[in-house]
Amino acid sequence: MTVRGLRPLTLLTVLLLAVGYGLAFFWAPLDADQGFRQKIFYLHVPLGIVALIGFVVGGYHGLRHLRGGKPGSDLRSYVAIHMAQIFAVAVLITGAIWGRTAWGKWWSWDEPFLVSFLIVFLLYCCYQPLRLSIDDPRRQARAASVFAVVAGAFVPINFAVVRMANQYLHPRTLTNSTDGSMPGSVAITFLVCLVAIAVLYATLVRYELLSKSTTFRLRALERQAGGDDLIPRRSAVPQA
């Protein structure tokens, strides 16, 4: 992937974001209960879905790394997870803002999506510390890939269990905005926003991959030229 190839993708991302959030603000109807505040739904939920898919994609690349797939698989796994972590922070922040405006509190244990997200986030917070604690680059990539696979499988299970427990502990939860039938315009707007956020994720992943691989090539050239600084510095970033 080159900078040239990234340009159309970037333009597409900007366009989709503009259309999606244009629809969300000017076309989709105001929510009967929550009014304008409910618009954050078009940001919060797509971010959440994309972050979760990103974690699972990280697991997929981790598995490919273990199975001796393409050499860049560990880097792809790292970047997929790293970007999903950033999206996950945004999910927790937008979720808290939504909770504050809708129910008057920053955090609610009654919202299974948010609670599951916190647990998943907590687990993925250990990803970089795990990498950093293993010096040997080959071993680090191995352990990180196993983590990515295990955690990727953990994501759906965790969601199912938290949702089940929530129904059991609080049979009458607050009505969830994603439940029930959405009016057509809401559904369409939501879908466009989801696609826009997904494309944003893919674009950012590409940018980070390009940046990292360029750095590696630069370092390799420096090493060739300088001779010294033979061994890459200890780092949580894969040394592809």
Binding site: D135, D229, L230, I231, P232, R233, R234
Partner: peptide
């Protein structure tokens, strides 16, 4: 080539 940390 083999290294411990950054030292060959």
């Amino acid at each position: 080539l083999s290294a411990h940390g950054q030292r060959a």
